[in-house]
Amino acid sequence: MRWLREQFELSRGGSDHNVRPMEGLRGFAVFLVFLVHYVTLIEPWLPEQASIRAFAGSLHAIGNTGVDLFFVLSGYLIYGSLITRNQQFGRFIHRRIQRIYPAFIVVFVIYVLLSFAFPSESKIPSDATEGFVYLAQNFLLLPGILPIEPLITVAWSLSYELFYYLVIPLVIAVFRLRDRSAAWRVSFFMIVASLLAAYCFAYGGHVRLIMFIAGILLYEVMESSWFLSPPSLLGFGAFCVGILGTLVPVSGTMGAVLKTLILFVAFFFLCLTCFRNHLIWLSRVFSWAPLRWLGNMSYSYYLIHGLALKAGFLVLPKVLPDAGFDSWLFWALLPPMFVLTLVPASALFLLVERPLSIFPEKRRDPNVPAAVRNFY
C-alpha cells in the first residue's frame, strides 16, 4: 500500500481541497470509458435476449459521457491556469505537448507494429503514400476535429484537447479577458456556448466542444463568493439526470445537442458540488484513494486500455472454450477484464508518463498547480 501511495499519489503537496475529488472524478471518467469498450467487445458473447442487449446498449451510451467529464475538467484546469497569469504561448504549448506526447508515442508505435503484425486488423492504407499520410495525420492528432478514422480509437478526443489548447490562449488574449470582470467573462462564454449549440443544432458539428466551456464557467463560479455551495444531493441528482439524459430516445443533431446540453449542466453541478466543499459525502466519495490513483494515471489508462481489452477477448475463447452465451458472463467478466487493463496502463504510467510528462527531471514550473501538471 505504501508503494502504491508513493507511485500513484501525485498531489501530496497540493493545498487545494478540490484536487482530491478532481483526481477521483478523472478516475470515474476513465472507468466510464472502459465500460464503452467492454460493452463493445463482449457484445458477440451476449445472448440474443433483448433485455441484456438493451442494458448493454444503455451502459455503452452512459459510458460515453466519461469523455465529456474529461473535457469539463480540462476546461476548468487549463482556463484557470491561463486566466490567472500571462503566459508565453509557445511555452504553454510546449508544456502541453510534453504532457501528451511521450505516452502517446509509445502507444502509437505499438499500434503501428501490431498493424503490420496483424494486417487483417490494420487501419493503415496499403498504398505507401496514403499510409504515410494517414500515420502523419494520426501522429499530429488530427482525427476527431477532422473526419479521419483514428488509428488509436480513443485518440479522437485528443484532437479536441489540442484544439482547446490552441484556441483558448488566443481567445483570452484577443478579448483581453484578464482585464474583464468575472460577470463579463461568464456572459461572454455563455454566449459562445449558445452560439455553438445553435450552430450544431442547425448544421451539425463538434457540439461536445461546449463541455470545455462548462469547465471554464466552473472555474469562474469557483472563484466567486456569490454562488452558494450545493449540497451533495444536488450534485448527485445532477449527475443522475446527466447520465440518464443520454438515454433520451432523440437522435440526429437535435438529440446530440440536447444530450450534450443536459451533460453541460449536470457535470457543472457535479464538479461544483465536489470542489466547493471537500467535507460533504459526495466529495469524500470521489476522494477515495484507489479512485484517485486511477485518476492520476487516467491518461495512460485511456490510451492503452482498449488494446488490453482487445487482447483479453482474443484470448478468452481459449480460456473459456465452452462458455455459454448467457447474461451471467457480462457480469462475471467485467472485474477481471478491468483488472487486466490496469496492468499495461500502470506500466505505461510508471515507465513513461510519470517520468517523462509529469516529473520530467527538474523542469517543472513551480507556479503551475499540481492538478494542472497531472492532467492530460
Rank of each mutant, 00 (worst) to 15 (best):
G144L: 04
Y164Q: 00
I124W: 15
L141C: 01
S115P: 06
L142N: 06
P143Q: 03
Y160A: 12
I191Q: 01
I172M: 07
E161N: 04
E161L: 01
E130F: 13
L158R: 08
T129K: 08
F188S: 03
S157D: 11
E121W: 11
E121L: 11
M190D: 07
R185T: 14
F189R: 03
L170A: 12
A182P: 06
V192C: 01
W156T: 02
S159P: 00
L177H: 07
F188P: 05
D127Q: 13
A183P: 09
F188M: 04
I152T: 10
L151K: 02
E149K: 02
G131T: 06
P119K: 05
L162E: 04
V192T: 03
A155W: 02
I145D: 05
L158I: 06
A136M: 13
F189M: 03
P150E: 05
I124H: 15
A128Q: 11
V167T: 06
S159T: 01
S115A: 13
Y164I: 10
L195S: 05
V171L: 15
R185I: 13
R180D: 04
E149H: 00
L195I: 10
L114R: 13
D179N: 02
G144H: 12
I148P: 00
D179I: 02
F188Q: 12
L158Y: 06
L196I: 15
A117E: 13
A193I: 07
I145H: 00
E121T: 05
A182M: 09
F116T: 07
L196D: 10
L162R: 07
S181N: 10
E121G: 12
L140G: 08
S194H: 00
Y134M: 08
L135V: 07
T129D: 02
A128L: 14
V133F: 07
L195P: 02
S126K: 06
D179E: 14
E149G: 07
A128R: 06
I145C: 01
V174Y: 15
S115G: 12
P147M: 03
F118H: 11
P143G: 03
D179H: 06
T153S: 13
L141W: 02
K123C: 03
